[in-house]
Amino acid sequence: MRLKVDLLPRGSYPDVVVLVDVLRGTTNAPILLEAGAKHVYLTPSLKTARQYAQDHNLLLVGERDGMPLEGSNYPASPAELRNRTLDRDVMYMAQSTPQALRNLSEAKHVLLGSFYNARAVVKKAVELAAEEIAIVCTGQDGNETLEDTVCAGFLARRIEKLREVQLLDAARMAMALVRAFPDVQEALLQSSTGQQLQKLRLYEDIAVSSLISQTDRVPKLLDVKLSEDTPVYRFK
Rank of each mutant, 00 (worst) to 15 (best):
L155S: 02
S96A: 15
D205L: 08
V224D: 00
N117F: 01
S105M: 11
E204Q: 15
Y92C: 04
A94H: 06
M173W: 08
L221W: 05
L211R: 14
Q195C: 04
S209K: 00
L167Q: 07
D223H: 11
Q185L: 10
V184A: 03
M91L: 15
Y116P: 07
A152M: 05
R157Y: 05
Y92E: 07
R217H: 13
F154T: 05
F181C: 09
R163P: 02
V126Y: 08
E144M: 15
I212E: 12
M93S: 14
L86M: 09
V121Q: 07
N143W: 09
P219H: 07
Q198D: 07
S114R: 05
K225I: 13
S191E: 08
L111W: 01
I159K: 02
Q95R: 11
R157N: 13
A174L: 04
A134K: 01
A134T: 12
T97M: 05
S209E: 05
A152G: 12
V184K: 02
E228T: 08
D148V: 11
P182M: 10
L226Y: 11
E127I: 06
L197D: 02
V110D: 00
D87C: 05
L162K: 15
R102P: 00
D87Q: 15
L202T: 01
D183H: 09
R102D: 12
R217C: 07
V184T: 07
I135V: 13
A180K: 14
L162W: 09
A174F: 03
D223A: 13
G139A: 04
K108Q: 14
M175L: 08
D183E: 14
L197S: 06
L104I: 10
